[in-house]
């Protein structure tokens, strides 16, 4: 917040529009950039299922807690999968999250 913003706030005036512009732009671009990588929700669901199938071959996953999503930062969109493991196949119980990152442009 700048001095100008503070004075505007105290006087009950609207904040400078450049801030609004920046925020709106960042929001709309986050959407646009994910669209560009052409990953629809259907595709994401399919990918999620396949990733889980592979991982489930080696470890037991807590299926209720699984989260797979796309996160966009700057020009990079990252696939972030959070797969809580209940136990390994050998039987040891571990409470550890595996995080997988797969960068796509």
């Amino acid at each position: 917040m700048t001095l100008r913003d503070l004075i505007n706030k105290l006087l009950g005036r609207e904040t400078a529009s450049a801030n609004t512009a920046r925020e709106r732009l960042q929001l709309v671009l986050a959407h646009d950039r994910v669209d560009m990588s052409s990953l629809s929700t259907d595709l994401l669901d399919k990918m999620r299922k396949e990733i889980l199938d592979v991982v489930a071959k080696y470890v037991e996953i807590d299926f209720d807690e699984v989260a797979v999503s796309l996160e966009t930062e700057d020009r990079m969109t990252a696939l972030v999968a959070n797969l809580p493991i209940k136990r390994t196949i050998s039987g040891e119980i571990q409470f550890k999250n595996i995080e997988k990152k797969n960068k796509t442009k």
């Binding site: 700048t2 100008r4 529009s17 450049a18 801030n19 920046r22 960042q26």
Partner: peptide, 18 residues
């Protein structure tokens, strides 16, 4: 307008478009 923060600054534009 930029000084008055009523227009996106040069830094805004370059950083958004990287």
């Amino acid at each position: 307008m930029m000084a008055n923060q009523e227009m996106l600054s040069i830094e805004d534009v370059t950083s958004i478009l990287s």
